[in-house]
C-alpha cells in the first residue's frame, strides 16, 4: 500500500473530534500549512493540540483556534496570538504550559516508548506543582510524562515514496519528534522523490515513523519577524 496521498482532505479525513494531535513547527517556521488548512475545512472539534506555539491570529494553528476547533493546547510559548488570549481568559481554552525542552523531550520520549523521565527543569517553579520529584546525586528532578498523539502533523522539505524525510535548516525544529510520536503521522513536503533518490546518509526521519506523505504546493512560509542587516 502506497504511503503517498494525493489529497489533504483524504489524508486528514479520519481525524476525529476529541483526538490529540502533535504538530511540528516553531512559530510559523516549518509548520504543516496544508494539513492545518484541510483540518479547518473538515471542522473537527474538541482537539488537544501539542505544539510549541499556536500560530498567529490568522496563520498556522491560529486558524483552528479562530474556528473554535481546539479544546486544549500543550505549548511552551503562546505570546503571538490575541484569539488565544481571549479564549484562554474566557475559559473556552485549556492550556498546559510546558518548558520548551521538556515539551521536546516529552514528545521524543512518547515516540520512543518511554512513559516518563526526570528533568531538573522547573524544580521549585509553578510548573512543578503536583509533579513527583526524585533526588539523584543530591539534586532534585521532576518526573515528566511522554506524550503520544492519535495523529502527528509534520512538515518536511523532501520525502521519498517510503516516507523518509529530510528537513531544511531551522524548519526542522519539533518536526522529527512529532513524526515519532503520532500513531498515524501525516507528513507534508515540498517535493516527493522515488525511494532511493534520497541519500540514506542524510535522512533525518526514517520512513518507519511516517504513515502518509503528501506534496503540498504554494507554501506561504510566512515570516513572523523580518529582520535584515542595515545597509
Amino acid at each position: 500500500m502506497s504511503k503517498v496521498y494525493k489529497s489533504f482532505v483524504e489524508a486528514v479525513s479520519d481525524i476525529e473530534d476529541g483526538n490529540t494531535l502533535i504538530v511540528g513547527g516553531f512559530g510559523l517556521s516549518g509548520i504543516p500549512e496544508k494539513s492545518i488548512e484541510a483540518l479547518r475545512e473538515q471542522g473537527t472539534k474538541e482537539l488537544t493540540v501539542v505544539s510549541n506555539n499556536c500560530g498567529v491570529d490568522d496563520g498556522g494553528l491560529g486558524i483552528l483556534l479562530a474556528n473554535k476547533q481546539i479544546k486544549k493546547m500543550i505549548s511552551s510559548y503562546v505570546g503571538e496570538n490575541k484569539i488565544f488570549e481571549q479564549q484562554y481568559l474566557s475559559g473556552e481554552l485549556e492550556v498546559e504550559l510546558t518548558p520548551q525542552g521538556t515539551l521536546a523531550e516529552r514528545i521524543r520520549a512518547g515516540g520512543a516508548g518511554i512513559p516518563g523521565f526526570y528533568t531538573a527543569t522547573g524544580v521549585g517553579t509553578p510548573i512543578a506543582e503536583g509533579k513527583e520529584t526524585k533526588d539523584f546525586n543530591g539534586k532534585t528532578y521532576l518526573l515528566e510524562e511522554g506524550i503520544v498523539g492519535d495523529f502527528a502533523l509534520v512538515k518536511a522539505w523532501k520525502a521519498d515514496t517510503l516516507g523518509n524525510l529530510v528537513y531544511r535548516k531551522t524548519a526542522r525544529n519539533f518536526n522529527p519528534l512529532a513524526a515519532m510520536a503520532g500513531k498515524i503521522t501525516i507528513a507534508e513536503v515540498e517535493e516527493i522523490v522515488e525511494a532511493g533518490e534520497l541519500d540514506p546518509n542524510e535522512i533525518h526521519t526514517p520512513g518507519i515513523y511516517v504513515q502518509r506523505v503528501l506534496q503540498g504546493t504554494n507554501y506561504e512560509k510566512r515570516i513572523e519577524r523580518l529582520t535584515v542587516a542595515k545597509a
Binding site: S75, S76, Y77, V78, G79, E85, Y88, L89, V95, L97, P99, Q100, G101, T102, T119, A120, T121, G122, V123, T125, I127
Partner: peptide, 15 residues
C-alpha cells in the same frame, strides 16, 4: 496579566 509561556527559559537557566 496574559501568560505567554516560558519558552526555553526554564531549561536554559537550569542547564
Amino acid at each position: 496579566k496574559m501568560v505567554k509561556g516560558m519558552g526555553g527559559a526554564m531549561d536554559l537557566v537550569t542547564g
